[in-house]
Each structure stands twice: as C-alpha cells, then as structure tokens.
C-alpha cells in the first residue's frame, strides 16, 4: 500500500478566459506528477505562477481545461470530506468557538464522541484553555491552528494546504512548521502543501515540485531525504535549498543580478 499513488495528475492543462474577448490566459501546461500515500509534498514556484490553481483543481474547487486528476483511483468531481483543504485566507468560522469550529465536520458523530475527538485535536495543536474562545480573540497563528485541527478532526486521507502560514510572522511560522511535521508524523496523513517559500518547502517535505513562471510547468522534482528533525544548518539542508533556488533561476547573493536579469544597458534609466 505504501507505494501506491494516492494523487495522480496526468497531462493537466489549465487556461482562463482573459480580459479581452477570445483571449486565453494559459496558467498550467502539461503537469504530471504523483503523490504517494503518507507523503509530504510541497509545491513551490514564483508568485502568481498557478500553484494555488493547481491545488484548487486537485481539491475539486476548480476544473482543469484538459487532462486527468485522480485521487485514490477516482477522477476528482468536486470537494470531498475525505480530503480537507486548509486555506491561505483562513477559513475558520468567526461565529463559532474554537470547539465548535474543530467539531464542524463531525455532525454525524454522537455528542460524546465528537467531544472526545475535539479535545484530542485541541490538545494536539496546543489550544488548551481556548476551547470557548471566538476566532476574533485569537492570534493569526492560533486561528491557523484551529483550521488545521478542524481539518484533522474530520479524519481525511489527504490534507491540501494553500500557503497556510503565509500571513504569519517569522517566528510563528517556524513554530507552526515544526508542529505540522510532528502532527504529520503521528497522524500519517498525505499532505500536499503549496508555498512560495523555498526554505519552508525544504524544512517540511519529502519531495518538492518546483514550478516555473506562467504558464507553469513542473520544472523539476527534488527529493529531500534529510532525516527529521531537520537541522537548518546542516550541509545537506543548505545544499538542497540552493539546488531549488538555482532551479528557480535565483541567486542567493543579494546585490548580484539574477541569471535572467536584463543587461544594464537594457534596463530603465533610474
């Protein structure tokens, strides 16, 4: 079972109608990849390249223009409670308490069973003492924890995460990443995680899909076989990170021209 692909994307294309009539904006081209069960895969790419679009197609919120997306052997027909999406803009319901939010997907369970599951995940994401708090009383990081707990409580096979830590500050982000890896290790879910932050991808995942600029293709797939917990100073970590940076055509030396940068003579006068 372990090696079976749970998500299969085959020759996926996506284009939107553009601003002018008849015009098509090509967002995704020829996307092919698979995610194995229990794997933690990150999708990185420049802002606006279409990585969120890709995740939304896999999640069933959008439809691709061409190609197949199969999850657990079935073509994706729409959103499904067996695969929960964690949104960048935080989808925690502001009219419900922490407890009610986390139990949102558990309506079919009996009251005591629901309470047990909710208590378990409140503990797991470290929100003890905030059970009856409303989201407006929580920090950004805590709200994101509520959403992750809500996703886990529904016991999905796969969790899709669309830049879930994008709006958090640096320290909170580091902490959230460590917690997410710990939770992933204990819950054994498949996670597909979109980010524009290369460091984040290297810290979290088993494999990184590197996407190009629009129209996005998968430029390269980098396997990260660094042991966990990951040492952010180790040669292996730095080497992997740099490999992805250079795959995206970026220099790590501030002040140096990017590889794709125009020659000085062709640039706009200051």
């Amino acid at each position: 079972m372990q090696a079976n692909p749970t998500v299969q994307v085959r020759d996926l294309w996506m284009s939107f109608p553009g601003k002018r009539s008849g015009e098509q904006v090509h967002v995704l081209e020829r996307i092919n990849f698979e995610v194995r069960q229990g794997e933690f895969v990150c999708i990185v790419g420049p802002s606006g390249c279409g990585k969120s679009t890709l995740l939304n197609i896999i999640g069933g919120f959008l439809r691709g223009s061409r190609g197949d997306v199969m999850v657990e052997g079935q073509p994706v027909a729409g959103p499904d409670p067996r695969r929960i999406f964690v949104f960048q803009e935080n989808g925690v319901f502001p009219w419900l308490t922490v407890t009610e939010n986390i139990g949102f997907g558990l309506l079919k369970k009996s009251e005591p069973e629901r309470a047990k599951i909710v208590a378990h995940y409140i503990e797991m994401v470290g929100l003890n003492g905030f059970e009856r708090a409303y989201p407006r009383e929580l920090s950004g990081g805590m709200k994101q924890r509520v959403e992750i707990a809500r996703a886990l409580a529904a016991n999905p096979d796969i969790i899709y995460m669309d830049e879930p830590f994008g709006a958090l500050d640096f320290i909170t982000r580091l902490k959230m990443r460590a917690d997410l890896v710990r939770i992933w290790q204990s819950e054994k879910k498949t996670i597909l995680f979109v980010t524009h932050d290369i460091e984040e991808a290297v810290q979290l995942s088993d494999r990184v899909l590197v996407m190009s600029k629009r129209p996005a293709t998968i430029q390269t797939i980098v396997s990260i076989d660094l042991p966990r917990p990951r040492d952010l100073d180790s040669a292996g970590y730095l080497e992997t990170r740099d490999r992805i940076f250079s795959a995206m055509g970026m220099s790590l030396r501030i002040g140096e021209n990017e590889k794709e940068a125009l020659p000085i003579s062709a640039q706009q006068p200051v």
């Binding site: 929960i84 949104f87 529904a154």
Partner: peptide, 13 residues
C-alpha cells in the same frame, strides 16, 4: 460573504 467560508463548507460535504 467571504468565499472561503462557502468553500470550507462545501469541503465538509
């Protein structure tokens, strides 16, 4: 209405 609430709700079936 924030679309994210509807999308989350649809996700939970």
């Amino acid at each position: 209405m924030q679309p994210v609430y509807l999308r989350a709700a649809r996700n939970f079936g």
